[in-house]
Design a protein around this nucleic acid. Structure first.
Length: 282
DNA sequence: CTAGGATCCTGTCAGC
DNA sequence: TGCTGACAGGATCCTA
């Protein structure tokens, strides 16, 4: 699913098309994908908390949307604008068999598609957004966190692999599988190293790397792999232009030329350069 | 409290 | 062709 940069891209793009538009109705095709009672109202604000998107409505309700692994948002108005998990749904006739929720607006329709049904749209009161169990648990995003704060957290989870730690949204918020791999590569840290083994200097480098890889992605409109499409329908190009290791196993490391390999860490596919990211001081 | 693994669900792809 | 297992840009739940 989208990580922070993709959700930020969705937020910015979607704002252009549905801000100030009124939601007039909701059709739920999969009960699991919609939590709460459907609401109507004008979209007054679009916010992002980590990987969660919030649409505030003028009636005092908000829609919290989390796309998890395979969620997509496709706005069909005078033009079609798609974002989220890659598939032909972006151009296919809608709704289709992966459509879970249809949100009707004054001038168009917002389709929520989700192949694996891990994601959801949830109705909550706008004033309860900050206390929602998911939102409340989120840690700071890399730009708001100091190296010292991160270092403290690494010490508290000292026996876990560093990759597992930075994927935990309650420790640092926004990284997913792509940017975890990219940040660790950029900081030259092996993903299986115990979090507690990182020096203060390494921790700072990792934090700065996380900011850098995600900012680059936001600036280029999110990542793609014949895949993620920006909310304005154009493709982002982070993976093509900037990704150094993610899904590049078998290719030469752009820094040293050694072959990039794929391993498994914390249950996730993980891409590393075995030369640039060594475990020596674990 | 931390740490690790199973689990939610559908679809695709590699390897018999 | 058909079957099978592995895997997937996430997060939670359960267990030790």
């Amino acid at each position: 699913m989208p990580e922070l940069p993709e959700v930020e891209t969705i937020k910015r793009g979607l704002a252009k098309f549905i801000m100030k538009q009124r939601i007039t109705g909701t059709e739920i095709l999969c009960e699991k994908s919609f939590i709460g009672t459907p609401v109507t109202g004008k979209v007054t604000n679009i916010r992002r908390f980590g990987k969660a998107l919030i649409l505030d409505l003028d009636g005092g309700s908000s829609l919290m949307i989390h796309l998890r692994m395979t969620g997509q948002l496709i706005y069909d108005g005078t033009e079609r604008y798609a974002a989220g998990h890659p598939s032909d749904n972006f151009t296919a006739n809608l709704p289709n068999k992966q459509t879970r929720v249809i949100i009707k607006l004054e001038n168009g329709t917002l389709y929520y598609n989700d192949q694996r049904k891990f994601g959801f749209i949830k109705v909550i009161n706008t004033n309860e957004v900050p206390t929602d169990p998911f939102i409340k648990k989120l840690a700071k995003e890399p730009w708001a966190m100091t190296p010292a704060e991160l270092y403290e957290k690494l010490k508290r989870h000292k026996n876990s692999p560093i990759k597992a730690v930075i994927l935990d949204q309650t420790i640092i918020c926004g990284l997913g599988n792509i940017y975890a791999d990219e940040a660790l590569f950029s900081a030259k840290i092996h993903p299986t190293r115990k979090a507690g083994s990182l020096s203060q200097k390494e921790t700072e480098k990792l934090l700065l790397s996380a900011r850098e890889v995600m900012q680059k992605s936001i600036d280029s409109g999110g990542s793609t792999m014949a895949t993620y499409v920006k909310a304005d329908g154009t493709k982002g190009d982070y993976l093509e232009k900037f990704a150094q290791v993610f899904r590049r196993d078998g290719q030469p490391c752009p820094v040293c030329g050694e072959k990039i390999i794929k391993i498994k860490v914390a249950g996730r596919g993980t891409h590393i350069c075995p030369h640039c990211q060594r475990k020596s001081n674990d």
